[in-house]
Write a protein that binds this DNA or RNA. Sequence first.
DNA 1: TATGAATGAGACTTCATTCAT
DNA 2: AATGAATGAAGTCTCATTCAT
Lengths: 212, 212, 212, 212
Amino acid sequence: MQAGSPKWRRRAEARPGEIVQAAFDVFAEKGFAAAKLDDIAARAGISKGALYLYFETKEDLFRAVVREAVVPNLDMEQVLAQTTVPFPDLMRIVLARMGQMIGKTRLGAVAKLVIGESRNFPELARVWHDEVVSRALGALSTALAKAQVRGEIRLGDPRLQAFSIMGPILMGVIWQETFTPVGAPALDLELLISAHGDTVLAGLAPRAGVLK
Amino acid sequence: MQAGSPKWRRRAEARPGEIVQAAFDVFAEKGFAAAKLDDIAARAGISKGALYLYFETKEDLFRAVVREAVVPNLDMEQVLAQTTVPFPDLMRIVLARMGQMIGKTRLGAVAKLVIGESRNFPELARVWHDEVVSRALGALSTALAKAQVRGEIRLGDPRLQAFSIMGPILMGVIWQETFTPVGAPALDLELLISAHGDTVLAGLAPRAGVLK
Amino acid sequence: MQAGSPKWRRRAEARPGEIVQAAFDVFAEKGFAAAKLDDIAARAGISKGALYLYFETKEDLFRAVVREAVVPNLDMEQVLAQTTVPFPDLMRIVLARMGQMIGKTRLGAVAKLVIGESRNFPELARVWHDEVVSRALGALSTALAKAQVRGEIRLGDPRLQAFSIMGPILMGVIWQETFTPVGAPALDLELLISAHGDTVLAGLAPRAGVLK
Amino acid sequence: MQAGSPKWRRRAEARPGEIVQAAFDVFAEKGFAAAKLDDIAARAGISKGALYLYFETKEDLFRAVVREAVVPNLDMEQVLAQTTVPFPDLMRIVLARMGQMIGKTRLGAVAKLVIGESRNFPELARVWHDEVVSRALGALSTALAKAQVRGEIRLGDPRLQAFSIMGPILMGVIWQETFTPVGAPALDLELLISAHGDTVLAGLAPRAGVLK
DNA sequence: TATGAATGAGACTTCATTCAT
DNA sequence: AATGAATGAAGTCTCATTCAT
């Protein structure tokens, strides 16, 4: 009310990022609809009105949040493109990298958001599919196909093999995000990844013992 | 106003089920917050007020929907409890049964709901964990542990092995519910299950070829 | 649902009275707007729909309740019309009678209703004024005027004298209905009436000592 | 949409008071339940939503209205505490002051609200009892007791004597609020107070003629 | 006569968005 | 660029009233 001490300072350049970060937290906590701009603004340390200087609508902000999390894709693709490295080595490298990334980026929370809001924001599901899931799966499938050709792994639809590889990790992430917070025992993702790596690589091995 | 057709008919017994069904559709489509009671009522063919004859609040209705879908657990547990059947056979039976159930029950949609709303309805996540996920995983782990003892499968943390078995199926379900509707290629779950069964069983086999 | 035991019996003649009684209880407890027909029906032991066999609307029922309580007026009027009895005796008789009536009829609760809803149901306030308050006050004023003429009491506006006589009793009733239920000490109405009778009769006496 | 006149003006400081004032009018007119926030907002010249910037719920607003009217108690207490002034003088001062206050503050309307809603808002009845009625009555009783000791008035339960003093005034207020609006003859409160003062002081006088 | 499921208008409340400052 | 008071549409929930049985 008094002149003198400004209530705010400009930090125009930093703002959008901070807002997106705050919004991410709230969206991850509540989902899109239940998230309140009031909360986001409060967490970002600005007024509700100021949000509209950077984002046109709540949906816009949500899109920004989800897109932001579209990780600059994993250079997993580059790793997988290497043909000189034996497939199992490749695979272990990739799996390890995923483990690290999940630990760092709260990828799990985003996955939950994308899954939960896919019907209300189909374009986001599409973006995630196109930019993240499909590319990762594509790179993996390609590597698997090549490995098959080289006789490193068993023949079969590489796409389905990719599901066998990635599925348990996704499940682990969802477990952590969904059930651990409500009392389920925590899961050691690193361990899961390592154990699953053993299993699935054994399963894909060309001469794997046939159980039946 | 018109003579002839009655405004409504009393259907006390059938109503709750119809409402839950309608609510399921809308919740699955929109998520909890974005679902409108108007829509649910319309789809159930009743007035908005009538919902309140059967459910106290929107949350209550949501709970009913999710609980309704807590399938009387799969008698998967009974199958897995059998010790005379070789583990691989057991596994294939269970996987096949899951495939069928997923096809029938829209289990995927519920999974999405539970995952998406777990922060807002922790009790539901808990119920699902306790009644469905944990039990299934527990039964599976037990069977795996026994199979290890009998030398049918490789040694290792049975819980993690269970993730290796179930993860890809969950991933497939999520894929179908999340990405297929926005243009991703459909996934043949039966095929996935069958292929993954081969892979993972080979991977768990005691003397599976060691790739590295 | 089953044939055999009838859910209800006809007691057509008794019903309206029972309903009014039940309605009175609920209205007295909640006021008009906050009273629910559901509660009234339940307390009357009938279905909500059945109320409409006897009363057209909720307002109708309320009117019936208040009118019902328009006590067959007090034969106070007859007592007060007597001219052969000395005024103080008359007064004590009347006051005593009021005390009894208040004890029996829950007049206080009705007074609260009439006061509280007078803006929403002006006709009821009017009825009460015309049938109860005005008549009682009128009879009292007439008796006071006559007593003045006979030199039994001090000269003055009989209407205002009537307020001096009745006011404390009304206040007592309101106290009982309003403050006692929330923890205020109970009031012995009989005692109040008796003490006030002494005071006011002394005050009205022709040669009452002048304090100033 | 039109250029020129702003849709609203910010009035943060004045608003709460204006709203309470508007709410008071509507509550006094309709009672709690029948009062509509729409009406209150309209009368306050703001939107319905703006009410919620200042009050959490309708009940909250009602409480604020009633509490607002808890007059900073009348300094009646101080007047009555004086022991050097003869009791009759004290009494006339107090009565006169009450007359003025009633004229100014619409105390009567609040009394009606408190009485009418006491069952639904017992805490308000309690507040009014504790802060207003009980204190006033207490101060009066104390003064009466002292006056008895000094032989200025007749012996007797001071509490009951206080009812004799105050009752007719309360009755007058209720009359004005309840019956005058529906056609009953208006009452001159000043006159009532003055006449009643004469009567009751005479009645309390130590040697007041005994009529019987 | 009696029921009670069903209705539908209307109330309170929330919250994304706007706009005067 | 920033604020935050104000808006207003929309949603949940209630309840007097109706009507098929």
